[in-house]
Computed example of a mutant assay.
Amino acid sequence: MSTQSRTSGGVKVGDQAPDFSLPTSTGEEVSLKSLLGQKNIVLYFYPKADTPGCTAEACSFRDSYEVFKEAGAEVIGVSSDSSEDHDKFAKRYSLPFILASDKTGALRKSYGVPATFGLLPGRVTYIIDKQGVVQHVFSSQFAPQKHVDEALKVLRELA
Rank of each mutant, 00 (worst) to 15 (best):
K153L: 12
C54I: 05
A106G: 08
L107K: 01
S79T: 02
D102N: 03
N40A: 09
R108D: 00
Q145E: 15
D102Y: 08
K153P: 06
L152K: 05
Q135G: 03
S8G: 04
Y111H: 07
H147M: 09
G122Y: 11
F142L: 13
P23K: 09
R123Y: 11
A17Y: 11
L36F: 12
D63N: 12
R62E: 04
L22G: 00
G112W: 08
P23T: 03
R156P: 01
A73K: 06
L155C: 01
T125Y: 11
G53L: 03
R156Q: 12
G122L: 07
G122E: 11
E157R: 03
Q145P: 00
D63G: 06
C59V: 12
A90D: 08
A100G: 02
K12R: 13
G14Q: 08
V133A: 09
F97P: 08
E157T: 03
R123G: 05
T125G: 06
E74W: 05
A73I: 09
L22T: 00
V154I: 10
V75K: 05
I41W: 02
D102P: 00
P23S: 01
A90G: 09
T24D: 02
L119I: 14
K39S: 11
V30P: 00
C59D: 01
L107T: 02
D102W: 08
L22P: 00
T7N: 14
L36Q: 13
Y65L: 01
P52C: 07
S80H: 03
V154D: 01
F20S: 06
L95N: 10
A73H: 07
Y93H: 15
L158M: 05
L119D: 10
Q141R: 07
P23Q: 05
H136N: 14
E70R: 10
R156W: 00
Q141E: 13
F61H: 08
S83G: 06
K88E: 14
L119T: 11
K109F: 05
K69W: 00
D87K: 15
D50Q: 11
V75D: 10
D81Y: 02
G53P: 06
L107M: 04
K103G: 04
H86S: 03
L95C: 07
S80E: 01
K48F: 00
